[in-house]
Design a protein around this nucleic acid. Structure first.
Lengths: 299, 299
DNA sequence: CCTGTTTTCGAATGATATTTCTATTTTTTG
DNA sequence: CAAAAAATAGAAATATCATTCGAAAACAGG
């Protein structure tokens, strides 16, 4: 919001050179051009051509998932929510060629302004006095928003590929921890009910590694993983990958460590409300996968 | 964003009097209460009961017509666009009982955050030739329908009672099998993450009966069960009932064997599509329960 | 036309946010 | 395993912002 600094001038040939010599790492120096719009930024992030270290990746994930927080908040608030230092945000912005966070933030503000061109008139009077009911409504809203996103942009090609691989597999290993575990549980259950043989890797008795150690190249792994990616799932999937199994993943961003291990992956972004995350979209996609596999095998 | 000032305390009877004597004009002094939401503010402005002098009216009109500018901009930018001095904006905010512009601006930011939780809404009703996509849309529809039913008829009283009992319990046993298991898994996980001690009765090693054999009258059981009711869940709950624990149930019909064993129960009806049942509504209600318990215990 | 009150303006002030810089930690490389 | 490079955290510095306050202007009533 402040401290814009007088160094806000466009990166001239000279300053580019200087930066490149001094810090040696800026996307501009690598031939990238500074994203002028939010969509361009998203495209760059999604391309996966840029590999960030831990904290910067953390920032990228947060920007991806909570653009409105970035637009509305101060650098301190955003840094806090993303779990990094304010200076890390500045570094991130500068890597993309901006003079600092304020400059960078304009992308997000413009985006918001653009997609909400000062409506006037629409009124919804939903006075909600009860706190519990309020939360419930918020949670329902988060679920519906998550489901809504599926309708908008869904990678049907990736989905079909996943169905193909799963249908062709001799045995399907279903892997997921923490928040993803309810999803894998339901997947495994419905697969079994539909007569599709599968193994739910639940790590009871800490036997997960031994289980995935039995995977053969004819098998497929259906992995589900959400940010933060600090569970055992990536390790298990890495083993499966070494053993040359097909890896099919449901995850919530390009930055998932599973993305690069996977033959195909689907992005399913779940919304949260008050820190409680929806699973509705993932479950729906999961059911569709099961249905697809059954249809492919029987049809 | 800054200079919040130490004069942020609510207008007490005394300060009201003082202000009224000194400046003689604040809506609080006129019996108005400080608007807590953007909608309330709009209502006050629209009512036309307040007559502002020229510059303040200018402010009111600008706020009405360009709420997003107010949310995203700094006081200087907003003042500039509205054609007034920054201090005029501060005065305006203070008339409504806020300590200053920053405080006032939160109304607009919250409003934006709330109604822009990441894109949502637009559904394309294109006739879908792809079978997989068709099923996915059907599944999404089933989820949304299930969620929608919550909004219509929800027994908030039963919900509150359940929260009370759960919050009062020494230890919470979470029980559910088959389709209900993903729900109990997520319930147990989030409860633990929120610091609420609980036992997930998962029947690994067929130890479920022994686990529930440890239940005391000070404990509570949170049971989830769906039709058909042929699983082990009713048996486990029956044991818990004999041991005089509180029984709180989420189920899908009056005919559930759990209903008669329960102190309180909530009906959550999940819709299915092609034989695949949604869990969205149960999960949403479950999260609301967890949230309620945490709020009750900490608040 | 004058006087008391209300409103507005704009500079001074106090507070906050952003950025820069450096020591430390982590990672990579030979 | 050691040395070099990169990345990070944290604090200090700096720029910007929000608020206050006194004086000038506009207004209303007599």
């Amino acid at each position: 919001m402040s401290g814009r600094g007088k160094a806000a001038e466009e990166p001239s040939a000279h300053s580019l050179e200087t930066v490149a010599r001094k810090r040696s790492r800026s996307l501009a120096a690598l031939g990238y051009t500074k994203p002028q719009t939010y969509e361009e930024l998203r495209a760059v992030l999604a391309s996966g051509t840029v590999h960030f270290p831990k904290r910067l990746r953390q920032v990228a994930i947060f920007l991806w998932q909570h653009p409105s927080e970035v637009a509305l908040g101060t650098i301190a608030q955003v840094a806090d929510q993303a779990g990094v230092q304010p200076s890390t945000l500045v570094r991130f912005a500068q890597i993309f060629g901006y003079s600092g966070f304020s400059d960078f933030q304009l992308l997000f503000k413009d985006r918001m302004k653009g997609s909400w061109p000062d409506m006037q008139g629409s009124q919804d009077e939903t006075g909600e006095p009860n706190a519990n009911l309020h939360f419930l409504n918020g949670m329902v809203g988060a679920c519906q928003a998550s489901l809504g996103r599926i309708g908008n942009d869904f990678d049907i090609a990736a989905f079909e590929t996943m169905v193909d691989h799963l249908a062709a597999a001799e045995l399907i290993y279903v892997i997921g921890s923490k928040r993803a575990f309810p999803v894998t549980t339901y997947l495994s259950l419905t697969l079994s009910q539909q007569g599709v043989r599968n193994v739910l890797v639940d790590n009871v008795g800490s036997t997960a590694l031994d289980q995935v150690g039995c995977i053969t190249p004819r098998d497929a792994v259906l992995a589900v993983s959400f940010s933060p990616y600090n569970s055992i799932t990536p390790d298990l999937v890495a083993v499966a990958h070494e053993r040359k199994a097909r890896i099919l993943t449901i995850t919530d961003s390009t930055f998932s460590p599973l993305a690069k291990l996977s033959d195909t992956w689907l992005e399913v972004v779940e919304q949260d409300f008050g820190g409680f995350r929806s699973l509705a979209a993932s479950l729906a996609v999961g059911m569709a996968l099961v249905h697809g596999v059954v249809a492919r095998r029987t049809g």
